[in-house]
Design a protein around this nucleic acid. Sequence first.
DNA 1: GTAAATTTGTGTTAAATAACATAAGAGGCC
DNA 2: GGCCTCTTATGTTATTTAACACAAATTTAC
Lengths: 219, 219
Amino acid sequence: MAEMWNALRPDEKRIVTENFTIQNFKKNQIIYAEKETPEMLWCLLKGKVKMYKSGIGDRVQILRLYRPVQYFGYRAYFAQEPYVSSAAAFEASTLGAIPMHIVDDIIRKNNDLAMFFIHELSRNLGGSDTKIVNLTQKHIRGRLADSLLLLADNYGLEEDGATIKIYLSREDLANLSNMTTSNAIRTLTAFVTEKLILVDGRKIKIINEPQLRKISKFG
Amino acid sequence: MAEMWNALRPDEKRIVTENFTIQNFKKNQIIYAEKETPEMLWCLLKGKVKMYKSGIGDRVQILRLYRPVQYFGYRAYFAQEPYVSSAAAFEASTLGAIPMHIVDDIIRKNNDLAMFFIHELSRNLGGSDTKIVNLTQKHIRGRLADSLLLLADNYGLEEDGATIKIYLSREDLANLSNMTTSNAIRTLTAFVTEKLILVDGRKIKIINEPQLRKISKFG
DNA sequence: GTAAATTTGTGTTAAATAACATAAGAGGCC
DNA sequence: GGCCTCTTATGTTATTTAACACAAATTTAC
Protein backbone atom coordinates (compact mmCIF):
# COMPACT_ATOMS: atom_id res chain seq x y z
CA MET A 1 0.00 0.00 0.00
CA ALA A 2 2.98 2.32 0.43
CA GLU A 3 3.12 1.91 -3.35
CA MET A 4 0.83 4.88 -3.46
CA TRP A 5 3.46 7.19 -2.05
CA ASN A 6 6.07 5.68 -4.36
CA ALA A 7 3.89 6.42 -7.37
CA LEU A 8 4.16 10.16 -6.69
CA ARG A 9 6.62 12.58 -8.26
CA PRO A 10 8.51 15.05 -5.99
CA ASP A 11 6.18 17.98 -6.71
CA GLU A 12 3.14 15.76 -6.12
CA LYS A 13 4.61 14.55 -2.83
CA ARG A 14 4.90 18.18 -1.79
CA ILE A 15 1.25 18.86 -2.67
CA VAL A 16 0.10 15.83 -0.73
CA THR A 17 2.22 16.72 2.29
CA GLU A 18 0.84 20.24 2.34
CA ASN A 19 -2.75 19.00 2.27
CA PHE A 20 -2.31 16.16 4.70
CA THR A 21 -3.97 16.48 8.12
CA ILE A 22 -3.60 14.05 10.99
CA GLN A 23 -6.54 13.06 13.17
CA ASN A 24 -6.91 10.80 16.17
CA PHE A 25 -9.95 8.58 16.67
CA LYS A 26 -11.07 6.92 19.87
CA LYS A 27 -12.21 3.33 20.13
CA ASN A 28 -15.49 2.87 18.21
CA GLN A 29 -15.44 6.44 16.91
CA ILE A 30 -16.97 6.83 13.45
CA ILE A 31 -14.66 8.09 10.69
CA TYR A 32 -17.37 8.50 8.09
CA ALA A 33 -20.95 7.26 7.78
CA GLU A 34 -23.26 5.83 5.14
CA LYS A 35 -24.99 8.42 2.93
CA GLU A 36 -22.41 11.12 3.61
CA THR A 37 -20.60 12.73 0.67
CA PRO A 38 -17.07 11.35 0.28
CA GLU A 39 -14.49 14.10 0.45
CA MET A 40 -11.35 12.62 1.96
CA LEU A 41 -8.90 9.91 1.18
CA TRP A 42 -8.13 8.30 4.51
CA CYS A 43 -4.82 6.76 5.37
CA LEU A 44 -4.63 4.55 8.46
CA LEU A 45 -1.31 5.24 10.20
CA LYS A 46 -1.83 3.51 13.53
CA GLY A 47 -4.59 1.29 14.92
CA LYS A 48 -7.31 -0.82 13.32
CA VAL A 49 -10.36 0.19 11.29
CA LYS A 50 -13.52 -1.59 10.13
CA MET A 51 -15.66 -0.73 7.12
CA TYR A 52 -19.24 -1.88 7.66
CA LYS A 53 -22.75 -1.54 6.36
CA SER A 54 -26.07 -1.46 8.20
CA GLY A 55 -28.75 -3.72 6.80
CA ILE A 56 -32.17 -4.97 7.81
CA GLY A 57 -33.27 -4.27 11.39
CA ASP A 58 -30.25 -3.73 13.61
CA ARG A 59 -27.99 -6.07 11.69
CA VAL A 60 -24.56 -4.92 10.59
CA GLN A 61 -22.14 -6.52 8.16
CA ILE A 62 -18.43 -5.81 8.45
CA LEU A 63 -17.14 -5.65 4.87
CA ARG A 64 -13.43 -4.89 5.10
CA LEU A 65 -10.68 -4.54 7.69
CA TYR A 66 -7.82 -2.03 7.52
CA ARG A 67 -4.39 -1.99 9.11
CA PRO A 68 -1.51 0.51 8.86
CA VAL A 69 -0.61 1.68 6.22
CA GLN A 70 -3.72 1.26 4.11
CA TYR A 71 -5.88 3.77 2.22
CA PHE A 72 -9.67 3.82 2.13
CA GLY A 73 -12.70 6.04 1.65
CA TYR A 74 -12.02 6.73 -2.04
CA ARG A 75 -14.43 4.27 -3.70
CA ALA A 76 -17.62 6.32 -3.29
CA TYR A 77 -15.83 9.46 -4.51
CA PHE A 78 -14.73 7.72 -7.70
CA ALA A 79 -18.19 6.20 -8.15
CA GLN A 80 -19.62 9.72 -7.72
CA GLU A 81 -22.12 8.61 -5.14
CA PRO A 82 -22.62 8.95 -1.35
CA TYR A 83 -20.95 6.38 0.89
CA VAL A 84 -22.82 3.05 0.96
CA SER A 85 -20.88 1.94 4.04
CA SER A 86 -19.39 3.43 7.19
CA ALA A 87 -15.93 3.29 8.75
CA ALA A 88 -15.04 3.24 12.44
CA ALA A 89 -12.00 2.63 14.60
CA PHE A 90 -11.79 -0.79 16.30
CA GLU A 91 -9.32 0.72 18.76
CA ALA A 92 -7.68 4.12 19.32
CA SER A 93 -6.24 5.00 15.90
CA THR A 94 -4.33 7.69 14.05
CA LEU A 95 -5.32 8.60 10.52
CA GLY A 96 -4.18 10.96 7.83
CA ALA A 97 -6.66 12.69 5.54
CA ILE A 98 -6.13 14.18 2.06
CA PRO A 99 -8.95 15.94 0.17
CA MET A 100 -10.08 13.69 -2.68
CA HIS A 101 -10.09 16.55 -5.17
CA ILE A 102 -6.33 16.85 -4.66
CA VAL A 103 -5.92 13.14 -5.29
CA ASP A 104 -8.19 13.44 -8.32
CA ASP A 105 -6.03 16.26 -9.75
CA ILE A 106 -2.88 14.19 -9.35
CA ILE A 107 -4.40 11.03 -10.84
CA ARG A 108 -5.33 12.86 -14.01
CA LYS A 109 -1.67 13.71 -14.54
CA ASN A 110 0.02 10.66 -13.04
CA ASN A 111 -0.77 7.27 -14.53
CA ASP A 112 1.12 5.32 -11.92
CA LEU A 113 -1.26 6.65 -9.31
CA ALA A 114 -4.24 5.81 -11.53
CA MET A 115 -2.89 2.28 -11.91
CA PHE A 116 -2.49 2.05 -8.14
CA PHE A 117 -6.21 2.71 -7.66
CA ILE A 118 -7.20 0.42 -10.54
CA HIS A 119 -5.21 -2.35 -8.91
CA GLU A 120 -6.63 -1.74 -5.43
CA LEU A 121 -10.22 -1.51 -6.65
CA SER A 122 -9.80 -4.67 -8.73
CA ARG A 123 -8.46 -6.64 -5.77
CA ASN A 124 -11.24 -5.37 -3.51
CA LEU A 125 -13.90 -6.26 -6.06
CA GLY A 126 -12.56 -9.80 -6.38
CA GLY A 127 -12.55 -10.07 -2.59
CA SER A 128 -16.10 -8.75 -2.36
CA ASP A 129 -17.34 -11.24 -4.96
CA THR A 130 -15.69 -14.11 -3.10
CA LYS A 131 -17.18 -12.85 0.16
CA ILE A 132 -20.66 -12.99 -1.34
CA VAL A 133 -20.32 -16.71 -1.95
CA ASN A 134 -18.61 -17.41 1.38
CA LEU A 135 -21.23 -15.55 3.40
CA THR A 136 -24.25 -16.92 1.56
CA GLN A 137 -23.27 -20.53 0.99
CA LYS A 138 -21.13 -21.57 3.95
CA HIS A 139 -22.65 -22.72 7.21
CA ILE A 140 -22.03 -20.95 10.49
CA ARG A 141 -18.94 -22.98 11.35
CA GLY A 142 -17.39 -22.31 7.97
CA ARG A 143 -18.13 -18.61 8.19
CA LEU A 144 -16.65 -18.27 11.66
CA ALA A 145 -13.55 -20.25 10.65
CA ASP A 146 -13.22 -17.90 7.66
CA SER A 147 -13.36 -14.87 9.94
CA LEU A 148 -10.76 -16.20 12.36
CA LEU A 149 -8.37 -16.96 9.51
CA LEU A 150 -9.06 -13.56 7.96
CA LEU A 151 -8.31 -11.79 11.23
CA ALA A 152 -5.06 -13.72 11.67
CA ASP A 153 -4.10 -12.92 8.10
CA ASN A 154 -4.97 -9.27 8.41
CA TYR A 155 -3.66 -8.38 11.82
CA GLY A 156 -1.07 -11.09 12.35
CA LEU A 157 -0.19 -13.12 15.42
CA GLU A 158 1.42 -12.33 18.77
CA GLU A 159 4.96 -13.46 19.61
CA ASP A 160 3.59 -16.93 20.48
CA GLY A 161 2.81 -17.38 16.78
CA ALA A 162 -0.78 -18.34 17.56
CA THR A 163 -2.76 -15.58 19.29
CA ILE A 164 -4.60 -13.32 16.86
CA LYS A 165 -3.43 -9.72 17.22
CA ILE A 166 -6.82 -8.11 17.68
CA TYR A 167 -9.13 -7.55 20.62
CA LEU A 168 -12.63 -8.02 19.23
CA SER A 169 -16.06 -8.26 20.87
CA ARG A 170 -18.20 -11.30 20.10
CA GLU A 171 -20.62 -8.94 18.43
CA ASP A 172 -17.99 -7.67 15.99
CA LEU A 173 -16.98 -11.25 15.29
CA ALA A 174 -20.64 -12.06 14.59
CA ASN A 175 -21.01 -9.03 12.31
CA LEU A 176 -17.95 -10.12 10.39
CA SER A 177 -19.35 -13.62 9.98
CA ASN A 178 -23.01 -12.90 9.21
CA MET A 179 -24.51 -14.52 12.30
CA THR A 180 -26.08 -13.53 15.60
CA THR A 181 -23.89 -12.80 18.62
CA SER A 182 -25.32 -15.87 20.36
CA ASN A 183 -24.27 -18.09 17.49
CA ALA A 184 -20.77 -16.58 17.39
CA ILE A 185 -20.38 -17.32 21.10
CA ARG A 186 -21.75 -20.85 20.80
CA THR A 187 -19.66 -21.72 17.75
CA LEU A 188 -16.54 -20.29 19.39
CA THR A 189 -17.21 -22.57 22.36
CA ALA A 190 -17.62 -25.52 19.99
CA PHE A 191 -14.23 -24.73 18.41
CA VAL A 192 -12.66 -24.65 21.89
CA THR A 193 -14.22 -28.02 22.74
CA GLU A 194 -12.82 -29.43 19.50
CA LYS A 195 -9.40 -28.05 20.43
CA LEU A 196 -9.15 -25.88 17.32
CA ILE A 197 -8.67 -22.69 19.32
CA LEU A 198 -8.10 -21.46 22.86
CA VAL A 199 -10.06 -18.52 24.16
CA ASP A 200 -9.11 -16.20 27.03
CA GLY A 201 -11.64 -13.41 27.15
CA ARG A 202 -11.27 -11.65 23.83
CA LYS A 203 -7.91 -13.18 23.04
CA ILE A 204 -8.16 -16.03 20.54
CA LYS A 205 -5.34 -18.50 19.99
CA ILE A 206 -5.38 -20.76 16.93
CA ILE A 207 -4.05 -24.18 17.86
CA ASN A 208 -5.23 -26.28 14.90
CA GLU A 209 -5.06 -24.14 11.81
CA PRO A 210 -5.21 -27.00 9.26
CA GLN A 211 -8.52 -28.19 10.69
CA LEU A 212 -9.84 -24.63 10.80
CA ARG A 213 -8.95 -24.29 7.11
CA LYS A 214 -10.76 -27.53 6.37
CA ILE A 215 -13.90 -26.26 8.13
CA SER A 216 -13.59 -22.98 6.24
CA LYS A 217 -13.28 -24.78 2.93
CA PHE A 218 -16.11 -27.26 3.21
CA GLY A 219 -18.77 -25.04 4.61
CA MET B 1 -20.37 2.40 -21.22
CA ALA B 2 -19.71 3.75 -24.70
CA GLU B 3 -17.70 6.33 -22.72
CA MET B 4 -14.82 3.95 -23.12
CA TRP B 5 -14.70 4.46 -26.85
CA ASN B 6 -15.11 8.22 -26.40
CA ALA B 7 -12.10 8.30 -24.08
CA LEU B 8 -9.84 7.13 -26.90
CA ARG B 9 -7.75 9.34 -29.18
CA PRO B 10 -7.82 8.72 -32.96
CA ASP B 11 -4.58 6.71 -33.02
CA GLU B 12 -5.76 4.65 -30.06
CA LYS B 13 -9.06 3.96 -31.77
CA ARG B 14 -7.10 2.63 -34.73
CA ILE B 15 -5.06 0.30 -32.48
CA VAL B 16 -8.21 -1.01 -30.79
CA THR B 17 -9.98 -1.55 -34.11
CA GLU B 18 -7.03 -3.48 -35.50
CA ASN B 19 -6.94 -5.76 -32.47
CA PHE B 20 -10.66 -6.26 -32.13
CA THR B 21 -12.07 -9.71 -32.95
CA ILE B 22 -15.73 -10.63 -33.03
CA GLN B 23 -17.01 -13.92 -31.66
CA ASN B 24 -20.43 -15.51 -31.45
CA PHE B 25 -21.55 -17.51 -28.44
CA LYS B 26 -24.45 -19.94 -28.24
CA LYS B 27 -26.96 -20.02 -25.41
CA ASN B 28 -25.25 -21.13 -22.19
CA GLN B 29 -21.81 -21.18 -23.83
CA ILE B 30 -18.99 -20.25 -21.46
CA ILE B 31 -16.97 -17.15 -22.36
CA TYR B 32 -14.34 -17.63 -19.69
CA ALA B 33 -14.11 -19.77 -16.59
CA GLU B 34 -12.93 -19.46 -12.99
CA LYS B 35 -9.18 -20.01 -12.48
CA GLU B 36 -8.29 -19.19 -16.08
CA THR B 37 -5.78 -16.43 -16.79
CA PRO B 38 -7.50 -13.21 -17.91
CA GLU B 39 -6.26 -12.09 -21.31
CA MET B 40 -9.14 -10.36 -23.04
CA LEU B 41 -11.32 -7.37 -22.48
CA TRP B 42 -14.78 -8.49 -23.56
CA CYS B 43 -17.35 -6.20 -25.06
CA LEU B 44 -20.94 -7.45 -25.27
CA LEU B 45 -22.40 -6.25 -28.59
CA LYS B 46 -25.59 -8.29 -28.78
CA GLY B 47 -27.34 -10.64 -26.37
CA LYS B 48 -27.17 -11.12 -22.61
CA VAL B 49 -24.36 -12.36 -20.37
CA LYS B 50 -24.11 -13.53 -16.75
CA MET B 51 -21.05 -13.45 -14.52
CA TYR B 52 -21.26 -16.13 -11.86
CA LYS B 53 -19.26 -18.02 -9.27
CA SER B 54 -19.44 -21.65 -8.18
CA GLY B 55 -19.54 -22.19 -4.46
CA ILE B 56 -20.16 -25.02 -2.04
CA GLY B 57 -21.59 -28.25 -3.51
CA ASP B 58 -23.36 -27.55 -6.78
CA ARG B 59 -24.50 -24.09 -5.77
CA VAL B 60 -23.89 -21.15 -8.09
CA GLN B 61 -24.23 -17.44 -7.41
CA ILE B 62 -24.89 -15.05 -10.28
CA LEU B 63 -22.91 -11.90 -9.46
CA ARG B 64 -23.49 -9.49 -12.32
CA LEU B 65 -25.55 -9.16 -15.49
CA TYR B 66 -24.38 -7.56 -18.74
CA ARG B 67 -26.25 -6.03 -21.65
CA PRO B 68 -25.01 -4.36 -24.86
CA VAL B 69 -22.79 -2.34 -24.88
CA GLN B 70 -20.93 -3.21 -21.69
CA TYR B 71 -17.35 -4.27 -21.03
CA PHE B 72 -16.21 -7.03 -18.68
CA GLY B 73 -13.45 -9.52 -17.97
CA TYR B 74 -10.86 -6.89 -17.03
CA ARG B 75 -11.01 -7.02 -13.22
CA ALA B 76 -8.88 -10.14 -12.76
CA TYR B 77 -6.28 -8.83 -15.22
CA PHE B 78 -5.91 -5.59 -13.28
CA ALA B 79 -5.81 -7.50 -9.98
CA GLN B 80 -3.08 -9.70 -11.49
CA GLU B 81 -4.84 -12.89 -10.50
CA PRO B 82 -6.78 -15.70 -12.22
CA TYR B 83 -10.52 -15.24 -12.71
CA VAL B 84 -12.51 -15.82 -9.51
CA SER B 85 -15.75 -16.04 -11.50
CA SER B 86 -17.00 -17.29 -14.86
CA ALA B 87 -18.98 -15.66 -17.65
CA ALA B 88 -21.53 -17.31 -19.93
CA ALA B 89 -24.14 -16.25 -22.46
CA PHE B 90 -27.78 -16.29 -21.26
CA GLU B 91 -28.84 -16.40 -24.92
CA ALA B 92 -27.11 -16.38 -28.32
CA SER B 93 -24.75 -13.40 -28.12
CA THR B 94 -22.14 -11.50 -30.10
CA LEU B 95 -19.01 -10.26 -28.36
CA GLY B 96 -15.92 -8.31 -29.25
CA ALA B 97 -12.56 -9.14 -27.70
CA ILE B 98 -9.47 -6.95 -27.29
CA PRO B 99 -6.24 -8.29 -25.74
CA MET B 100 -5.85 -6.79 -22.28
CA HIS B 101 -2.18 -5.96 -22.86
CA ILE B 102 -3.30 -3.57 -25.61
CA VAL B 103 -5.76 -1.94 -23.23
CA ASP B 104 -3.05 -1.79 -20.59
CA ASP B 105 -0.68 -0.01 -22.98
CA ILE B 106 -3.29 2.59 -23.83
CA ILE B 107 -4.31 3.19 -20.18
CA ARG B 108 -0.73 4.02 -19.26
CA LYS B 109 -0.77 6.84 -21.78
CA ASN B 110 -4.42 7.91 -21.63
CA ASN B 111 -5.77 9.07 -18.29
CA ASP B 112 -9.33 9.36 -19.47
CA LEU B 113 -9.33 5.64 -20.11
CA ALA B 114 -7.80 5.03 -16.68
CA MET B 115 -10.54 7.13 -15.13
CA PHE B 116 -13.14 5.14 -17.03
CA PHE B 117 -11.94 1.93 -15.39
CA ILE B 118 -11.59 3.56 -11.97
CA HIS B 119 -15.18 4.71 -12.25
CA GLU B 120 -16.51 1.33 -13.44
CA LEU B 121 -14.61 -0.61 -10.77
CA SER B 122 -15.78 1.78 -8.06
CA ARG B 123 -19.41 1.40 -9.09
CA ASN B 124 -19.12 -2.36 -9.25
CA LEU B 125 -17.49 -2.52 -5.83
CA GLY B 126 -20.28 -0.46 -4.30
CA GLY B 127 -22.81 -2.76 -5.95
CA SER B 128 -21.02 -5.84 -4.70
CA ASP B 129 -20.92 -4.51 -1.12
CA THR B 130 -24.64 -3.74 -1.25
CA LYS B 131 -25.32 -7.18 -2.68
CA ILE B 132 -23.56 -8.79 0.28
CA VAL B 133 -26.03 -7.22 2.69
CA ASN B 134 -29.06 -7.87 0.47
CA LEU B 135 -28.24 -11.52 -0.05
CA THR B 136 -27.28 -12.27 3.55
CA GLN B 137 -29.88 -10.29 5.45
CA LYS B 138 -33.05 -10.31 3.39
CA HIS B 139 -35.49 -13.19 3.47
CA ILE B 140 -36.38 -15.21 0.41
CA ARG B 141 -39.25 -12.96 -0.65
CA GLY B 142 -37.09 -9.85 -0.40
CA ARG B 143 -34.27 -11.47 -2.36
CA LEU B 144 -36.58 -12.61 -5.15
CA ALA B 145 -38.25 -9.21 -5.34
CA ASP B 146 -34.75 -7.68 -5.59
CA SER B 147 -33.88 -9.96 -8.47
CA LEU B 148 -37.05 -9.23 -10.41
CA LEU B 149 -36.50 -5.49 -10.04
CA LEU B 150 -32.84 -5.88 -10.98
CA LEU B 151 -33.75 -7.81 -14.13
CA ALA B 152 -36.33 -5.20 -15.14
CA ASP B 153 -33.80 -2.45 -14.51
CA ASN B 154 -31.06 -4.20 -16.40
CA TYR B 155 -32.84 -5.59 -19.40
CA GLY B 156 -35.87 -3.35 -19.57
CA LEU B 157 -39.51 -4.10 -20.33
CA GLU B 158 -41.41 -5.22 -23.44
CA GLU B 159 -43.72 -2.85 -25.30
CA ASP B 160 -46.46 -3.52 -22.72
CA GLY B 161 -44.30 -1.68 -20.18
CA ALA B 162 -44.53 -4.57 -17.72
CA THR B 163 -43.03 -7.81 -19.05
CA ILE B 164 -39.35 -8.20 -18.17
CA LYS B 165 -37.23 -8.47 -21.30
CA ILE B 166 -35.40 -11.67 -20.43
CA TYR B 167 -36.16 -15.35 -20.78
CA LEU B 168 -34.73 -16.96 -17.66
CA SER B 169 -34.98 -20.44 -16.17
CA ARG B 170 -36.20 -20.78 -12.59
CA GLU B 171 -32.75 -22.13 -11.76
CA ASP B 172 -31.03 -18.96 -13.01
CA LEU B 173 -33.52 -16.88 -11.06
CA ALA B 174 -32.71 -18.94 -7.96
CA ASN B 175 -28.96 -18.56 -8.54
CA LEU B 176 -29.40 -14.81 -8.82
CA SER B 177 -31.37 -14.72 -5.56
CA ASN B 178 -29.36 -17.12 -3.40
CA MET B 179 -32.04 -19.77 -2.95
CA THR B 180 -32.92 -23.25 -4.18
CA THR B 181 -34.85 -23.71 -7.42
CA SER B 182 -37.82 -25.08 -5.47
CA ASN B 183 -37.98 -21.96 -3.37
CA ALA B 184 -37.73 -19.68 -6.41
CA ILE B 185 -40.68 -21.53 -7.97
CA ARG B 186 -42.73 -21.48 -4.77
CA THR B 187 -42.07 -17.80 -4.06
CA LEU B 188 -42.86 -16.87 -7.66
CA THR B 189 -46.19 -18.68 -7.24
CA ALA B 190 -46.81 -16.76 -4.02
CA PHE B 191 -46.18 -13.45 -5.84
CA VAL B 192 -48.67 -14.48 -8.54
CA THR B 193 -51.28 -15.33 -5.87
CA GLU B 194 -50.69 -11.92 -4.32
CA LYS B 195 -51.17 -10.30 -7.75
CA LEU B 196 -47.70 -8.73 -7.74
CA ILE B 197 -46.70 -10.41 -10.98
CA LEU B 198 -48.13 -12.51 -13.81
CA VAL B 199 -46.23 -15.52 -15.05
CA ASP B 200 -46.54 -17.17 -18.46
CA GLY B 201 -43.86 -19.83 -18.70
CA ARG B 202 -40.62 -17.92 -18.44
CA LYS B 203 -42.16 -14.55 -19.17
CA ILE B 204 -42.67 -12.47 -16.04
CA LYS B 205 -44.91 -9.41 -15.98
CA ILE B 206 -44.69 -6.97 -13.08
CA ILE B 207 -48.17 -5.71 -12.20
CA ASN B 208 -47.58 -4.20 -8.74
CA GLU B 209 -44.12 -2.68 -8.70
CA PRO B 210 -44.64 -0.49 -5.59
CA GLN B 211 -45.51 -3.53 -3.50
CA LEU B 212 -42.58 -5.46 -4.97
CA ARG B 213 -40.28 -2.60 -3.94
CA LYS B 214 -41.76 -2.66 -0.47
CA ILE B 215 -41.05 -6.39 -0.16
CA SER B 216 -37.54 -5.83 -1.49
CA LYS B 217 -36.92 -3.09 1.05
CA PHE B 218 -38.17 -4.72 4.20
CA GLY B 219 -36.76 -8.13 3.85
C1' DG C 1 -42.60 -35.64 -35.03
C1' DT C 2 -41.60 -38.13 -31.30
C1' DA C 3 -38.89 -39.93 -27.47
C1' DA C 4 -35.74 -38.58 -23.99
C1' DA C 5 -34.14 -35.22 -21.09
C1' DT C 6 -34.84 -31.30 -18.55
C1' DT C 7 -37.61 -28.04 -16.13
C1' DT C 8 -41.49 -26.88 -13.40
C1' DG C 9 -44.58 -27.51 -9.68
C1' DT C 10 -45.96 -29.26 -5.13
C1' DG C 11 -46.04 -31.98 -0.91
C1' DT C 12 -43.33 -33.59 3.13
C1' DT C 13 -39.59 -33.78 6.19
C1' DA C 14 -35.22 -32.34 8.09
C1' DA C 15 -31.69 -29.09 9.19
C1' DA C 16 -29.87 -24.66 10.16
C1' DT C 17 -30.27 -20.48 12.28
C1' DA C 18 -32.63 -16.69 14.64
C1' DA C 19 -35.23 -15.12 18.49
C1' DC C 20 -36.07 -14.89 23.09
C1' DA C 21 -35.08 -15.37 28.00
C1' DT C 22 -32.17 -15.07 31.72
C1' DA C 23 -28.07 -15.45 34.62
C1' DA C 24 -23.34 -14.78 35.44
C1' DG C 25 -19.22 -12.19 34.63
C1' DA C 26 -16.32 -8.24 33.27
C1' DG C 27 -15.33 -3.57 32.65
C1' DG C 28 -16.02 1.38 33.16
C1' DC C 29 -17.02 5.27 36.17
C1' DC C 30 -17.30 8.24 40.14
C1' DG D 1 -14.41 -0.02 46.07
C1' DG D 2 -18.78 -0.63 44.70
C1' DC D 3 -22.55 0.23 41.54
C1' DC D 4 -24.22 0.08 37.00
C1' DT D 5 -23.97 -1.20 32.31
C1' DC D 6 -22.51 -3.98 28.76
C1' DT D 7 -20.82 -8.42 27.32
C1' DT D 8 -20.64 -13.28 27.53
C1' DA D 9 -22.73 -17.63 28.15
C1' DT D 10 -26.32 -21.03 27.79
C1' DG D 11 -30.95 -23.11 27.56
C1' DT D 12 -35.38 -23.25 24.93
C1' DT D 13 -38.44 -22.38 21.27
C1' DA D 14 -39.81 -20.62 16.78
C1' DT D 15 -38.86 -19.61 12.06
C1' DT D 16 -36.71 -19.98 7.86
C1' DT D 17 -34.85 -22.51 4.37
C1' DA D 18 -32.92 -26.66 2.30
C1' DA D 19 -33.40 -31.42 1.08
C1' DC D 20 -35.79 -34.97 -0.83
C1' DA D 21 -39.37 -37.18 -3.53
C1' DC D 22 -42.18 -37.53 -7.42
C1' DA D 23 -45.64 -36.19 -11.04
C1' DA D 24 -46.71 -33.19 -14.80
C1' DA D 25 -45.37 -30.10 -18.27
C1' DT D 26 -42.17 -28.32 -21.45
C1' DT D 27 -38.12 -28.25 -24.18
C1' DT D 28 -34.54 -30.37 -26.79
C1' DA D 29 -32.38 -33.50 -29.84
C1' DC D 30 -32.34 -36.48 -33.45
